[in-house]
Simulated assay, not measured.
Amino acid sequence: MKTWNLETNFLPHGIKKHTLKSGHTELWERRKKLGRGAFGTVWKETCVSGAKAGSVRAVKQMPRRHVSLVQRELIALAKFYIAMDFARYGDLESHISHRLPERETALIMVQITRAVRCIHEHNFVHRDLKPSNVLVVCRRPTWHVKVADFGVAKNIQGMDLHTSYMGTRGFMAPEIYSPSRLSAYTAAVDMWSLGTVAFRVRTGRLPWDSKDEKFAYYNNISSFPDLPLVRSGSSKRCKNFIEAVMARKPVDRLTAEQALGHKWLRRLGNYVDMIYNRCS
């Protein structure tokens, strides 16, 4: 969550040469295109020389139009790159063609919620939480996941958020669609998205089929659509958790810290720590 720059020279054939603070160098070679989104292209790279030889990483290449003014002033490069851990099992979306058992869902949500807590503690809002932005390090039944893709994340320290339509429609909080100039949206938009992810993983579908249905709930015209949760055999604690992070009013939604203390998640903290040690 801190500004970090690495002295890099771009060599022929997709090779990057990093000069470390110690004076040592590393050569990384681009091997495979992993995917492309609205905010850049992700490549698989392998270290071919240096202390990390044989290591693999994912690198996101972002056009300059998606780099903030401050970053443009700091980095005099034609393009902007973000280096990340490489997750060999892809994203969570590719693993949830069918709904997952409740315990596995809770394990995943503990980890995502911890990531959101960290993001919010550093005064950032992710704004695009969804299964395809959650990377899978270890697969079921243990599950080790990481939140990724901060392409539309925003530092909210000392500023209001008014940008509309930022994120992915099915997972966006209603207030993002048309934020009022008088009432900017807050980090609570991530909690709504987090609840939508939990609903999707547990039931295999989204809570609403259309924007109109979502706003009917948001405007207190209809109740929360808990029938898919009931049909999936979800516990009362699971349903309560999802509804608590998807409360109509942003101020009524659980914070990430409160969500981790919810009865549905809090007993799994130690087990998740064990998973981290096993998969690291």
Score class of each variant (00 low, 15 high):
173 A>Y: 06
130 K>Y: 05
219 N>K: 07
189 V>C: 09
19 T>D: 00
29 E>F: 08
82 I>S: 14
267 R>P: 14
28 W>I: 02
3 T>Q: 04
160 D>G: 15
156 I>L: 06
50 G>V: 03
33 K>T: 01
218 Y>S: 08
83 A>H: 05
67 V>H: 03
142 T>V: 04
149 D>V: 01
113 T>S: 11
2 K>N: 13
82 I>H: 15
33 K>H: 10
128 D>L: 00
40 G>V: 03
271 Y>N: 10
208 W>L: 05
160 D>T: 10
103 R>S: 13
252 D>E: 15
232 S>G: 10
168 T>N: 10
73 E>Q: 15
176 I>H: 12
102 E>M: 00
77 L>A: 14
105 T>H: 04
172 M>A: 05
37 G>D: 07
229 L>G: 12
28 W>Y: 04
221 I>W: 11
219 N>Y: 05
210 S>H: 12
153 A>K: 01
76 A>M: 13
109 M>S: 10
170 G>Y: 11
259 A>R: 10
124 F>W: 15
226 D>P: 08
161 L>P: 06
68 S>Q: 00
216 A>R: 08
103 R>K: 15
140 R>C: 08
195 G>D: 10
240 N>M: 03
54 G>Y: 05
20 L>T: 02
210 S>N: 09
37 G>I: 00
53 A>C: 10
51 A>Q: 11
248 R>C: 14
138 C>E: 15
25 T>A: 07
213 E>Q: 15
154 K>F: 06
227 L>N: 15
123 N>K: 09
167 G>M: 01
221 I>N: 13
74 L>F: 01
162 H>E: 06
26 E>G: 02
215 F>G: 06
172 M>I: 00
145 V>D: 07
203 T>Q: 12
117 R>I: 04
158 G>A: 06
133 N>Y: 11
131 P>I: 02
